[in-house]
Simulated assay, not measured.
Amino acid sequence: MIRVVLADDEAVVRVGVKGILQSDPDIDVVAEADTGRAAIDLVARHRPDVAVIDIRMPGLDGLTAAEAIRRSAEGTAVIMLTTFSEDAYIARALRAGACGFLLKSGDPHELIAGVRAVSEGAAYLSPKVAARVISAFGGDRMSRAERAKGRVAELSPRERQVLALVGAGCSNQEIGDRLHLVEGTVKSYVSAILNRLDVRNRVQAAIIAYEADLVDES
C-alpha cells in the first residue's frame, strides 16, 4: 500500500485529488493538510511514502514545506501540484528536492501514475508541465536542446534507452521489465547516467531526456 499525505489549502481540490488517488486500491491517503506547517507535522507523524503538496499555500507555502520534508523525512518522496501560472516557482521546487510535478487540472491517470512512480524511487514529470519545468533553467530552448543532445550522445545506446524511460517516469522495475534487465542492473545504469550527466537526481536526468527529445510524449 502506498501511503500519501495530501496538502492543499483548497478543500475542493483536496477532495478531488483524494478521490482520484483512492480510486486506486494500492493508494491510501492517510492524512490531509491545508497549510504547509500542517503538512510537515503530518509527514513527521505518519511517515508516508509520498507527500502531494500544493506549490503555493498561505502562510508557510508548499515549497518551504517540501524543503523541510526532504530534510527531515528522507523516505518520503514529494510531488508538487502546480498550475500553468506558477512557472517561477519550479526552479525552487527542483532545488527543494521535489521528485515530481503534476498539473492540478491534468489527467487523473497522471496523478496516479506520478504517485506510483515516485513511491518506487522514480521521477515523474507530467508531459504537459515538462516544458515548463525545463524552462525554469533559463536560456534559449534551442541551445539547451543542443547541449542536452551533446551530453546524451556521450552515453551508450543502452544508457540512452534507460534515460528515456527515466524521463517517461518509469521505476527501476518497470525499466527492467521493458528492457529485460534485472533491477540491480538498472540501478547501476541509472547511477552511471547520473554521474556521466553530472546531475544530482532523476528529476534533473528526466529534464535532460526531455530536452534531448528522448521521451515519447504521445
Rank of each mutant, 00 (worst) to 15 (best):
Y89H: 13
E10F: 08
A131E: 10
R147K: 09
V29F: 08
V166Y: 13
I53A: 08
I40H: 02
V5S: 01
D140R: 10
E159P: 02
I207C: 15
E154C: 06
D140I: 07
A11K: 12
V13K: 03
A51T: 08
P108L: 13
G184F: 05
R158W: 07
D213L: 12
L81I: 05
E183Y: 09
N195L: 12
D107I: 02
D107L: 10
A209T: 14
D87M: 06
G36V: 11
L42G: 01
P58D: 07
Y210K: 07
P108I: 11
L81K: 02
G169R: 12
R202H: 14
S191D: 11
V166W: 14
E174H: 09
S23C: 01
L103K: 01
R160Y: 13
D41K: 14
A98W: 03
D216V: 10
S156M: 04
A131D: 14
P58S: 06
S171R: 05
L81Y: 01
R92G: 08
F137C: 09
L94I: 15
K104P: 01
D216N: 15
Q161W: 12
R14V: 11
S119I: 01
K128Q: 15
S188M: 13
T185I: 13
Y89A: 15
V4Q: 01
K18E: 10
D34M: 08
E174C: 08
I207Q: 09
T83E: 08
C99F: 05
V133N: 12
S143A: 13
E217F: 04
A130W: 04
E183V: 15
R132M: 13
A96T: 06
G106C: 03
G167E: 01
I69V: 12
E74N: 04
T35G: 04
D198E: 15
R147I: 13
I112Q: 05
V166E: 04
G75W: 03
G100H: 07
V129A: 14
A31V: 10
E32A: 02
A205M: 14
A77V: 02
A123P: 14
I208Q: 11
D26R: 11
E159D: 12
S191R: 15
M1L: 08
P48C: 10
V30G: 03
H180W: 05
G121T: 05
A51Y: 06
V186F: 05
A136Q: 10
I79W: 01
A7T: 03
V152D: 07
G169S: 12
L155D: 04
D140Y: 00
S72D: 15
V50K: 02
I208S: 06
Y124N: 00
T76R: 02
D34K: 14
Q22I: 03
T82M: 03
Y89I: 02
Q22L: 02
P157R: 10
A31I: 02
